[in-house]
């Protein structure tokens, strides 16, 4: 055997390579099974970051389809309800540069809104009920409809189908319970304000300018 190896280096090399391949293959295969990570598929992770308004402003019929599209390489800046925070979160997740919101799909609104049906004008056509992606409108044919405010995502998909235009998007009232402190103004802005008021008297050059 040894002799054979010595005399035929090609055979020796082949044997060695096959042996190595077998050993490492076994190790890798074992590792793949043993240390298999049952991670969230990327679509789920993206879907978790989306605001779930199901508004379709991104051009997909709901958040999950858009998540799927992002996973397949679509742009991450098509979600106006989520706005920049969502884009930033998606960018962090996907490890890409965070773009600004694509204005084509709408603008980010600071104020959270919910749909409100002017109930005495409602004719009970159920069109809005069919349009609502989260079943947040209550009513029956020929009966007055109303919005379950706590379930409304403010997607405004119900506004357009209403034949009598009795649905408004009203801002969610911000009471004392919802109030919170704002972040302090950034230092630069604070300084600009100060400069305008000439508090830094020693800053002559700046004042002259």
């Amino acid at each position: 055997m040894y002799e054979l190896m010595i005399q035929h280096p090609l055979v020796a090399a082949l044997v060695a390579l096959v042996g190595l391949a077998l050993v490492f293959g076994a190790v890798l295969g074992f590792a793949a099974i043993k240390f298999h990570v049952e991670g969230d598929p990327i679509v789920d992770q993206i879907d978790k970051l989306l605001p779930q308004t199901q508004c379709g402003q991104c051009g997909y019929p709901g958040c999950r389809p858009y998540a799927q599209a992002i996973a397949n390489g679509d742009a991450i800046n098509k979600c106006p309800p989520g706005g920049q925070p969502t884009i930033n979160a998606l960018a962090a997740l996907l490890d890409v540069e965070a773009p600004t919101l694509d204005e084509e799909h709408g603008v980010e609104s600071d104020v959270k809104k919910v749909a409100y049906i002017r109930e005495d004008e409602c004719i009970g056509c159920t069109k809005c009920i069919q349009a609502c992606p989260v079943d947040a409108i209550l009513g029956a044919a020929k009966q007055m409809h109303t919005v379950i405010v706590s379930e409304c995502t403010g997607c405004d998909l119900c506004v357009e189908p209403c034949p009598v235009d009795c649905i408004d998007m009203v801002p969610v009232p911000q009471g004392i319970a919802e109030w919170k402190w704002d972040m302090p103004a950034p230092t630069a802005e604070q300084l600009k304000a100060l400069r305008a008021s000439d508090i830094i008297a020693t800053d002559r050059g700046e004042r002259a300018a």
Binding site: D47, L50, P51, Q52, T53, Q54, G62, C63, R64, P133, V134, D135, A136, E151, T153, E178, K180
Partner: peptide
């Protein structure tokens, strides 16, 4: 902000559940 975000998270989870149910 974090509290608000958590509330929104809860709300969006519920919205997702409702949407998926629908």
């Amino acid at each position: 902000d974090i509290r608000r975000q958590n509330q929104e998270k809860i709300k969006s989870d519920r919205a997702r559940a409702r949407f998926e149910f629908q």
